[in-house]
Simulated assay, not measured.
Amino acid sequence: MTETLHQFVEHYGLMAVFLGCLAEGETVAILGGFFAHQHVFALWQTLLAVFAGAFAGDTAFFALGRSFAQTGLVRRISRKPGFDRARQLVTDHPNIYVLSNRYIYGMRILGGVVAGLSGIATARFLVLNAISAAVWATLFCGFGYLFGLGAEQIVGRALLHHERLLVAFAIGVIVMAAAIAIARHLLGREKAREHRAG
């Protein structure tokens, strides 16, 4: 069973990394870095897949806001907590907003749509988005690579196939739990701010 899973990761893992990074993707990027350390993927291929997914995802959300502002989907997104604050931020500090938006868990989709609805030029967004995606890919793949290095230091040898999968599962659980806790905290703060403003 573990051998089959490992072969699946080897054959389809980079495509999964690309697809996983289209939306939030932090967990997937970290897992990609971990498997790159384990020589399941080449590091440069992992970085490229993470970068391409992050760049393509945010560009698609930007295009959604720019070209489909009147659709029901964009209207629903515009009613989410934090939308008005994000719109104010992109208006006041467009460069900083585009460069930093992807680092706030739960804001990638909302943030890209807000940028599309703003007056920021498409070429400017694409350049800033590429810079941000490159830094993000390096950072989160680097975290995963360090996880792999740490796991080998603890075990004292190269990880076996089933150990790789167990460590990957543990990384996923830890990162998802942390992300959910942070997202709940930020959402609670935003709701409290809107309540005070209302």
Rank of each mutant, 00 (worst) to 15 (best):
R75D: 12
R85W: 13
L14Y: 01
A183C: 03
K80C: 10
G172A: 05
F35K: 04
A60N: 02
L47V: 07
I180M: 14
F169N: 08
I109E: 03
V90I: 12
Y103K: 06
F169S: 14
Y103M: 14
L146A: 13
I171K: 06
H93V: 01
L139G: 13
A192E: 01
F51Q: 03
Y145S: 06
F61A: 09
I30W: 00
V114R: 03
G106R: 04
T46A: 05
T4P: 10
W44H: 11
A178F: 07
L165H: 15
V127C: 09
F41P: 00
I174P: 04
F83W: 14
G13E: 03
I182A: 15
L187W: 04
F62W: 09
G65D: 10
A134Q: 04
P81Y: 06
I109V: 15
A197F: 00
H162Y: 13
A36I: 02
L146P: 03
G172K: 09
Q38G: 13
L19Q: 02
M1D: 13
W44G: 03
V114W: 08
L5T: 07
Q45Y: 06
L128C: 06
V98M: 05
G20A: 05
V127D: 06
A123K: 00
V17N: 04
T59A: 07
L22R: 06
G119W: 00
Q153K: 10
A121F: 04
H39Q: 14
G106W: 08
E194P: 09
F41L: 00
I171Y: 03
K191H: 07
L117V: 08
A86G: 08
A181Q: 11
D58C: 07
R189E: 07
I174Y: 02
L110T: 07
E190S: 13
V90N: 05
I30N: 00
Y103P: 10
I154K: 03
Y12R: 10
R66G: 05
T59N: 04
E194K: 10
G112N: 11
L5F: 15
L48P: 06
T91A: 15
G198I: 00
G82I: 13
L139H: 13
G72N: 09
L146E: 11
W44T: 11
I104N: 04
A158T: 15
A56C: 12
L117P: 06
L64M: 15
H39N: 14
T138E: 03
A86Y: 09
G148L: 09
A36N: 09
A151Q: 11
R157Y: 03
G111K: 11
G82M: 10
I171L: 13
A192G: 01
L126D: 04
F8K: 13
A23W: 08
I96W: 12
I182C: 14
L47G: 09
A60G: 08
L166Y: 09
G65T: 01
F62M: 05
G116Y: 13
H195T: 08
R75K: 07
K80Q: 15
Q38L: 11
